[in-house]
Structure formats: C-alpha cells, structure tokens
Simulated assay, not measured.
Amino acid sequence: MKRFQLLLFLLIAIHSLNSFSQIDFNHAILSGKEISKEDSDDNLSPTIIQTFVIGLSLPQSTKYYFNYGEGVDLKNRLSFDAFYTINYPLLKKLTLGLVVGFQHQSQGSITGMKLGAVLRYYFKNYKSANFYFKATRSLALSKNVQNKVGYGNARAGLEFPVNTIGNLNIVFSVYWDNDSYSLSKPLLDNEIPDEITFHGGYGIGIGIQF
C-alpha cells in the first residue's frame, strides 16, 4: 500500500512540475503525513543526519534587470544543483542544519556556490518524510556574477525515502525554488547589468540520507 501511495505522489508531483501550478504547502504537509503513516515514532534520539541530493528545476519566470531599473523577461531554462546538508535536532522531529552546495542556471550560464541553513520537520522519525525550508547565500563561481549581500536561494520542499541500500536511505525531493544573483557583466549586449532573478521554479531531486 505504501509503495502505491509513493507512486501516486510521484505522478502528482511530476504533473505539477510540468504544469507549473502554484505550490500548495497544505497539500505538501498532508502528503508527507500520508507517506509517513506506516512509519513508527521511534528513532527520535538526538543524532546527526546528513543528506546529499542532486536536482533540477525550471523557473516560472526569469527577470533580468539592467540600466538602472529597466528589465526584461528571459526564456526559462533548466537549473541544476547539488546540495549537502548536515542536520541536528533542535526539538523532537525538528532539526536545524548547515547547507553547502552549488546551483547552475542554464539561462545566462550562471553558477553560484551556496552556503546557508535548513530547517526540517520530520513527520514520524528521522528516516521518514520531512518538510523543509532552506535559505542560502550565493557566492560567485562564474565571472559574470559578483558577491553581494541579499542574493541567494530560497527553497521549500517535501523529501521522503523511496528505498534503502545498506545503511543508506534513497530519498526523493519535490520542491519550490527561488534564486537570484547580482551581475557584473551584460547578458544581452552593452547594457549595464544589475541583477537576475529566477522566480518560482518547480523541481525534483534524488539523493541519499545517512
């Protein structure tokens, strides 16, 4: 029964990604509870939880600002990312973690290193589904990006196990993503660049928890 629920959720998630529908956090919470229904409430002693997940997303809109306020909409292109988190319990079922990774935006060929924090709520135990919110700052890896305070990535999503290999949990993630950068070089011609924002991307990821 649980495998059927997971398959059904994956199909809904992929459909939502393709149609770029508005994310509904209430549905994400309800889905997490449903996935975790058969999990036990044990294994909640304080422990370090690590994850490594790779993902891809597509923004709903890409806005490029230049010439002191002028802006245009650019074509939406795929984003690729990889994130490592190390999480430690604050309260029962709630963890706070450190995030490090990178994100590459195909539009503009922009790559940034990410450093920040993640807050997770586990529905049953530390190996069950969890709802998370992540905020990171962007550090330039591309020559056309400059480091400025206030630019980075915000992400909210649902992560849940789909299989176990030895001591590793294989996890799947469905998320909403927002990403922004301060630019140092023009993207179109000889304009004076300001910033680029990738709004409301919907993504999927797969990785391991250990």
Rank of each mutant, 00 (worst) to 15 (best):
L7I: 08
S45F: 04
G97W: 07
K134C: 11
Y151S: 03
Y121F: 05
N87I: 07
L78R: 13
F4T: 14
V162I: 14
Y175Q: 01
N87R: 10
D42A: 12
N125I: 04
Q146F: 00
I54C: 14
G157A: 02
A140M: 06
N144F: 00
G203A: 01
K33M: 12
F160W: 02
T164K: 00
S31Y: 00
I196R: 12
I48K: 07
G97A: 11
S182E: 05
L58A: 12
T85I: 09
I196Q: 03
V162L: 06
H15G: 14
A156D: 02
Y64R: 15
K134I: 00
F160V: 03
G201K: 04
G108N: 06
A117E: 11
I49P: 05
T95W: 11
I54M: 13
S19V: 14
G205R: 02
L94A: 11
Q146I: 11
F80Q: 06
S16N: 09
T164I: 10
S184C: 08
Y84S: 06
K143H: 11
K185M: 03
L119C: 05
D73M: 09
K148L: 01
Q22E: 14
E38G: 01
A156Q: 07
N144Q: 11
K2A: 13
Q50I: 02
K114N: 13
N163A: 10
N130F: 12
G112N: 06
F172D: 03
